[in-house]
């Protein structure tokens, strides 16, 4: 049966449209950032200027520090918690998981002002810590939820037999569970990292100088598209997108699986 039942006419054309619609903006950003408005030739000067700019380098390193540290912290804590929920025989484990899921759906604006007042009180405003704390904590619930799913896929018999052989709890975790969990950890880490890298509302409220600003804030501060900043604006956008594009290129299957697993299975 060559022609499928659901075959839609002109599919290649639609798919071309889809790819252009999704990827077009990024290509245009690249085009803007590389073209010199005066000469019309390809020119890397926007990138060179940016990389020379002390402010931009600080902002870039802020983004990297905040996202990686909070992803690492969140994943470590979430792994331990997910382990406790799924591998120990406890009551209310499922209820706890749903509570976590509910917390992960809190809108940021609802926790923004109390946190702001506390950070202001203890002098954490405009520090990287004021971002690392909420980023870590607000990615915890969803990380626990996802990792619990991955833990559940590992058969309990593996642990039992290791226990019979006299392995300690830590050895069981490190030698047996961790290797099996690697791909799930990677998926969770990617989703958490991307969320934190892109986060905007906490960052815009808690940071006031380039000492703690992250890339999204730096980009949002550019005045609207006037000729003289458009090169800088688009070049910094492209640089901000590079880690994300690399993630897509290397981990796309994982991302799609991670994104759809929660919504589709249940």
């Amino acid at each position: 049966m060559k022609t499928r039942f659901n075959e839609i006419k002109g599919r290649p054309f639609y798919i071309f449209l889809l790819v252009a619609w999704c990827a077009g903006p990024l290509i245009l950003l690249l085009f803007y950032s590389l073209s010199d408005i005066n000469s019309g030739y390809i020119d890397f000067k926007n990138y060179v200027n940016l990389l020379k700019d002390e402010n931009f380098r600080t902002v870039m390193s802020n983004s990297l520090i905040v996202s990686t540290v909070s992803t690492f912290l969140s994943l470590s804590l979430a792994t331990i918690s997910a382990y406790a929920i799924t591998r120990k025989s406890i009551r209310f484990g499922q209820a706890a998981l749903f509570l976590f899921l509910a917390i992960s759906m809190f809108p940021s604006i609802a926790t923004l002002s109390p946190l702001y007042l506390i950070f202001r009180e203890v002098g954490l405003r405009d520090t990287l810590i004021s971002l690392i704390i909420p980023y870590t904590v607000f990615s915890l619930p969803i990380a626990i939820w996802m990792l619990s799913g991955y833990f559940k896929q590992i058969p309990k018999e593996l642990e039992l037999s290791a226990k019979m052989d006299g392995c300690s709890g830590f050895t069981i975790f490190w030698k047996i569970l961790f290797p099996l969990l690697k791909s799930g950890l990677a998926t969770t880490a990617i989703l958490v990292f991307v969320t934190n890298w892109n986060e905007f509302i906490y960052a815009v409220a808690f940071t006031t100088t380039n000492l703690s600003r992250t890339l999204p804030i730096y980009i949002s501060k550019f005045p609207t598209a006037t000729d003289n900043v458009i090169g800088q604006l688009t070049a910094s956008s492209v640089i901000g997108a590079i880690p994300l594009i690399l993630i897509i290129l290397f981990f796309q299957k994982r991302i799609v699986a991670g994104l759809t697993s929660g919504a589709v299975k249940e």
Partner: peptide, 13 residues
């Protein structure tokens, strides 16, 4: 790859 671009790009960008 293309489909993931809008999802992964920061809303600000």
């Amino acid at each position: 790859t293309a489909i993931l671009i809008p999802w992964i790009l920061p809303t600000v960008i």
